[in-house]
Design a protein around this nucleic acid. Structure first.
Lengths: 199, 199
DNA sequence: CTACTATGTGAATGCCCGTTCACATGGAGG
DNA sequence: CCTCCATGTGAACGGGCATTCACATAGTAG
């Protein structure tokens, strides 16, 4: 009725953000086109002026998350610090992200999301592999500097590193916010650092 | 038509297992009552002879998983071995479970599953906490025997331990089975053991 | 053999959802 | 002020889903 008319680009961003918010609040499976439209302040059919369908809306939301993750990793790597310190910062930043926007682990781990279309899974998989690869490189640099044992397999350690934040993120959701992600991560880091020093 | 009649208890087990299989194959959101019934070899409405509704079917599938996890811990604890060796065995068994039935991480991590009903989330949360608690106890015993550093927080380490298997499970699914869970876990264990020895 | 109960069947129901379409309207450019 | 196109609207459709129900049948106890 009294709805303002806005350009497609603005609407697309609004819709993607509304989708993210709804996923965080209700879970991916409980997000309907109607709910997204309502949150944007528009009628359901209006969404189809800006997206071909629901799939494209979800893709846009995922892309938004991946971009933010990428930006965060870039920021950490740009800092001037020893590699292990950069890793610690990375862990810290991810813990903050998980605490602030719970929708992020929700959609990235929501496996149902990937069954519908394989290319979507591959897209996220490539994103994770890129992330793991950069972590592994940081570990290798630490090894070159003598901060980590050469015997450690950097790729294996990088997956382990990811587990440092992923599992607490899951615990947080399961406990309905009771689990203290930041505390867990802060205490787990020295253990991980110790693991890298084994001979 | 030519369907044999079986007792409710047998059917309930069949239905729960079929649900697990389907979740592994198609994802939780894509599992319908009709699909479960078809896999059991029965007509959809027949399910309602043995379960009140779809929710109860899903609950039964989750219960089956939680029971298996507990059984794993029971089996490992029953063995005569040092606590750290028991932990290693537990990790190995868990990895086997994840490899054999990919539906396990899928349903446990499928967050949408929990949004519908809070009691369901609490049930799984209690199950995970029980699991983590027993892991932490094994770590404490290792500390008493001098196999692990007393400074290590056993609860923090137990979450870390869970991450050793959880993240590889996710990677396995994302990579469509490419990721080698057993290899990752086998190589990550010595690192984790090293982490427990830090001072 | 009979009768009863638990189990299985197929059709029907109602709901929610994604999507489409004919129509309305706002707002920018002439 | 007028025109036109992008954007917004409301109603409708079609499909899939969980669930129900009247009826059929297998196994079993007496």
């Amino acid at each position: 009725m009294a709805t303002k008319k806005l350009g497609t680009q603005i609407r697309q961003e609004q819709i993607a953000q509304a989708t993210l918010d709804l996923i965080a609040a209700k879970g991916l499976a409980n997000v309907s086109v109607a709910a997204v439209a309502r949150r944007v302040g528009v009628v359901p059919s209006a969404l189809y002026r800006h997206f071909a369908g629901k799939d494209e809306v979800l893709d846009a939301a995922v892309e938004m998350i991946l971009n933010r993750l990428q930006a965060n990793v870039d920021a950490v790597v740009a800092e001037e610090a020893p590699p292990l310190e950069q890793l610690r910062r990375l862990l810290e930043m991810h813990a903050d992200m998980v605490c602030k926007n719970r929708g992020i682990p929700l959609i990235l781990l929501s496996q149902d999301f990937y069954f519908a279309r394989a290319d979507r899974r591959q897209r996220v998989h490539r994103g994770m592999r890129a992330y793991l690869s950069r972590v592994a490189n940081l570990i290798r640099r630490a090894q070159q500097l003598g901060h980590a044992a050469p015997a450690v397999n950097a790729d294996v350690a990088s997956v382990m590193f990811l587990g440092l934040i992923q599992t607490p993120g899951i615990m947080q959701h399961m406990s309905d916010g009771q689990f203290d992600v930041r505390s867990q991560v802060a205490q787990a880091w020295p253990l991980f650092e110790g693991a890298l020093r084994i001979v």
